[in-house]
């Protein structure tokens, strides 16, 4: 089996040019989804009536069917409703001007939020109740308790799982190519189709994604270490 190594090397810079798009999708969907997920987790932790039940259904729903389908629902479904709204209010159809990238980030954020909420909910539940009682005993409000004591410790428990999700997001971003977003996978497929060098391209793509993830793993390992320093006995 002969690999066209020159072609492989040549393709690297071309694929990497789309790295910012991949990064944008992954990072933003993680941030937005993360924030929403945290909010959902807090609502469920404090068992806020009505919303608790609502979000339990939400989480089950979003985790329950494929991300690709969620992406298509966003890309084909949302413009339809936006159009309906615009027509009823009497303005020009705004959906035309929304780039596919926005739909991708939206769908991925929603998807991420469901998984993140479970990460934070379990992290919070794993904390010992005694510290929460100690906070009450000195007169801290729930907000103060969460902000100063519970959330910082929950973060330490949550980081490995959040890293997991983030790495998953990076891989999931490849789906965006199906709604014509020019992220790395999309570029790679175009290159492969043009020259019929499928194997070379996919090997290169695999290595690029892997190196990206390895780099991030090391960054997050350091973060995890710094956050959990208070647990060290010596």
């Amino acid at each position: 089996m002969r690999l066209d190594t020159q072609f492989m090397l040549d393709s690297i810079p071309i694929i990497l040019k789309a790295l910012p798009v991949t990064a944008f999708i992954s990072v933003f969907s993680m941030l937005l989804g993360g924030l929403l997920g945290l909010l959902i987790a807090l609502i469920r932790y404090y068992k806020i009536p009505v919303l608790d039940r609502l979000f339990r259904v939400y989480v089950s729903l979003i985790r329950g069917f494929p991300l690709m389908v969620q992406l298509y629902l966003a890309y084909f479904g949302l413009p339809f409703y936006i159009n309906m709204y615009c027509q009823s209010v009497g303005i020009d159809n705004l959906a035309k001007n929304i780039p596919p990238l926005a739909f991708a980030v939206f769908a991925f954020s929603v998807n991420t939020s469901a998984y993140v909420s479970e990460v934070f909910r379990s992290a919070l539940d794993s904390l010992d109740k005694g510290q929460r009682e100690a906070c009450s005993s000195i007169g801290m409000t729930s907000f103060q308790t969460m902000a100063h004591i519970l959330l910082p410790q929950a973060m330490v428990a949550a980081i490995p799982n959040l890293v997991n999700l983030f790495l998953g997001n990076i891989k999931a971003s490849t789906l965006a190519y199906m709604i014509s977003v020019h992220e790395m996978m999309g570029v790679a497929v175009v290159l492969a189709n043009r020259a019929y060098n499928y194997l070379e391209i996919y090997i290169v793509t695999a290595v690029i994604y892997w190196l990206l993830c390895v780099l991030l793993e090391r960054v997050f390992a350091r973060m995890e270490f710094r956050f959990s320093r208070y647990k060290v006995r010596v």
Binding site: G130, Q131, E133, A134, I138, G139, I149, V156, Y230
Partner: peptide, 21 residues
């Protein structure tokens, strides 16, 4: 309740110190 909790303090059997502080 908050008012009372601000006027009292408790020392627990398992100390319940804030681990991250």
């Amino acid at each position: 309740k908050l008012e009372v909790q601000r006027k009292t303090a408790m020392v627990f059997q398992l100390n319940n110190l804030f681990a991250n502080k």
